[in-house]
Design a protein around this nucleic acid. Structure first.
Lengths: 232, 232
DNA sequence: GTTAATTAACTTGTCGACAAGTGTACTTGG
DNA sequence: CCAAGTACACTTGTCGACAAGTTAATTAAC
């Protein structure tokens, strides 16, 4: 069972910790769609009171992983379709961000991005999975930060924990497929940098589109088939 | 002082009610940027315990109206720039949604939209401000719902309360400018319908762009100047 | 007068408890 | 055997309390 890296737990809040744990469990199918979670149950499981659990449930509901009902929260899980949709949003956001960044001075951004990619290389060579995942996330977050658009950043922050968990899970599969796959992931990021450097609006849009199309394909392999039950 | 329509309060949760009230107060500048709110203070003000206030604070933080700090939540308010950014996102979302809707059978959607516009007409004629605002919101929500994209709908739901409050506030100004202004707003919606009917991808994109550009301009008039202090 | 230490009044995060409401299972009547 | 009513276990929303931590002010020392 995949554990959440203690290093990423900058958040001291118990609620966030519980949310992170539950997220992983749901993504790993350790908690299965259709199950019903109650606040008492989870609180007892983690040996806490209901207050932090309540926060965690809200977070998971915001992620779309569970649905809060009048009695109990039913687990929805993350179907392939859900991941596709989530990455539709990522594409939308990042396209927006890159367009905006490309209209400014990009020297510092590109510098940061290259550094981050090198960090990925390093993490890949030394088999540091969670570091690899972390710098992958950092890469995209850097772009979004530099767009200087508070509301876009807000959107990103809202889905950040979920994406974090997804990347964490899928990175395992990436490493399982050997060096050529990590190299392929790294190269995808280099391509983005290149597109930003030389890029007009259209080339950036295409570059982002390609990146996330590839990601979606990989994700479909990583995530086991799951029946997508119709949601309310 | 503008009150929140009791009719819209489908939500029975005390936390949501408090959030709605506070949102309006912040938007009306009755609670000013820079002020520091404490949970105890608000709880006492509304005669409740801290639990629902806590929820409300989280909601307001998600809206970007306040910033939760270690001690107290500092009020950020909504500057013109913030509104511009928020409507950037609306444009992004609705463009995405309309593109998707236009690739399907639109007959039922267009039917709903026309009905909603007629409701706006009616509300305008009878000076029912909050109804006018409500149907304005409904119009856009209808489009987004019919895009059948769970994650986009999620995004919309996340910003819905804030947009609701903004529309509520600005609608007052729309009515203050007389019939020609309400007619103008209604006509904007008709134009969207027309673009969707006849529209290719490009015409829809332009239509949406025009709509929100107009909205942004109007909003700038409605919202009084406010210093945009740099945010962390 | 200035600086450092201590106190005092706040703040949030977490906890356990209670009431109101919901669904289930069981009982009771046919 | 089946249906309607009832009781029970379990749920969430809300409450008040406490501890740990932070800020500001007051005091004390120099």
């Amino acid at each position: 069972m995949l554990q959440f890296p203690e290093l990423w737990m900058n958040t001291i809040s118990l609620g966030e910790r519980i949310a992170n744990e539950l997220r992983l469990k749901i993504l790993e199918n350790s908690i299965k769609p259709g199950e019903v979670l109650s606040e008492n149950q989870i609180a007892q499981l983690y040996g806490t009171s209901r207050s932090p659990v309540r926060d965690a449930m809200k977070a998971l509901s915001n992620d779309g992983l569970i649905h809060l009902e009048r009695m109990g929260a039913v687990v929805l899980g993350l179907s392939q379709k859900d991941v596709q949709e989530l990455y539709d949003i990522r594409e939308m956001i990042e396209n927006f961000a890159q367009q905006r960044v490309s209209r400014k001075d990009m020297s510092t951004v590109l510098h940061s991005l290259c550094l981050t990619i090198d960090q990925m290389e390093l993490a890949a060579r030394y088999d540091m999975h969670s570091n690899f995942a972390y710098y992958d996330l950092t890469f995209h977050e850097t772009i979004i930060r530099h767009a200087r658009h508070q509301r876009i950043l807000n959107l990103w922050n809202g889905m950040r924990p979920l994406i974090m968990a997804i990347i964490l899970v899928t990175t395992e599969d990436v490493f399982a497929h050997g060096t050529e796959h990590t190299e392929w992931v790294i190269d995808k990021h280099r391509k983005i940098v290149r597109a930003m450097q030389t890029g007009t609006s259209e080339t950036i849009e295409k570059s982002v589109g390609r990146y996330f199309d590839d990601s979606k394909r990989t994700l479909n392999k990583s995530f086991p088939l799951r029946i997508d039950e119709g949601r309310a």
